[in-house]
């Protein structure tokens, strides 16, 4: 579903991604871990072209993002994204946040978009918050709305960029719960995270990134219990 070949990304002189190769299968849940500055968020953001790609190929759902003929807007409709800072639209209430893109991009009628939004709010357990504004919600609730908003486009895959890093510890669980449910439903997911418990439990595969490269990858059991690379060992020692 996602094929990445020799992906490089420079910010000016600074090479952040130094040749990433990676295949992600449909329904696979891939967790990306690694120290800060390792390029894992940049890697994720290249998958929907929030960052321009310096060189290499990223093929998502059969479409090569680096091809100038590719309509990036239409590719993005198939890729949901959830941000560390939620990025809800503060001037719109919860249900309007969710309805906006389905109406403007998918051309759903107001009623159809509303029905879809209500269903998703139910799914993330926030039906009663439909008319509230993001500023009135807790961080965990905001992030669940953000997930519902991304799902409203009925994407084929979801990208999560440290979705729980900005949350108070007691609010992390409710967000992970929603993500877990999504994973069980067969959603293809790429999750940049510091939640090792989640990676271990839900991830089909874990990528360890350091210094712009995928240093090691494998199933969670193998990577957490029997890491091969010294750098992986060092990182896991520090955080576990």
């Amino acid at each position: 579903m996602i094929k990445v070949k020799d992906l490089h990304k420079n910010f000016g002189e600074n090479e952040v991604l130094k040749g990433i190769d990676c295949h992600i299968q449909p329904s696979e849940v891939v967790c990306v871990i690694g120290p800060s500055g390792s390029g894992k968020s940049t890697f994720l953001r290249c998958l929907n072209m929030l960052e321009t790609i310096t060189s290499g190929d990223v093929v998502v759902d059969g479409q090569n993002l680096t091809d100038s003929q590719t309509d990036i807007n239409s590719v993005r409709t198939e890729i949901g994204m959830v941000f560390q800072q939620f990025n809800l639209f503060p001037h719109k209430n919860v249900i309007e946040n969710i309805m906006l893109a389905p109406k403007k991009v998918r051309k759903l009628t107001d009623q159809a978009a509303r029905d879809r939004a209500m269903k998703l709010l139910e799914k993330v357990g926030l039906s009663e918050k439909a008319e509230q504004y993001p500023g009135q919600l807790s961080g965990g609730q905001q992030q669940r709305v953000a997930i519902a908003r991304a799902l409203a486009m009925e994407p084929k895959m979801m990208l999560f960029d440290e979705p729980t890093s900005a949350l108070d510890p007691e609010l992390v669980g409710e967000v992970l719960e929603v993500m877990k449910q999504l994973a069980h439903e067969g959603m293809t997911m790429v999750v940049v995270t510091h939640e090792m418990g989640f990676a271990r439990e839900v991830g089909d595969r874990v990528l360890f990134m350091d210094n712009g490269l995928i240093v090691e990858e494998g199933n969670p059991d193998q990577l957490f219990n029997n890491p091969q690379s010294e750098r992986t060992k060092g990182f896991l020692n520090k955080i576990l």
Partner: peptide, 13 residues
């Protein structure tokens, strides 16, 4: 905030 534009664009707008 830059995230507002990114959120909009990531939804396909």
């Amino acid at each position: 905030e830059k995230g507002q534009m990114e959120a909009g664009r990531s939804l396909g707008l």
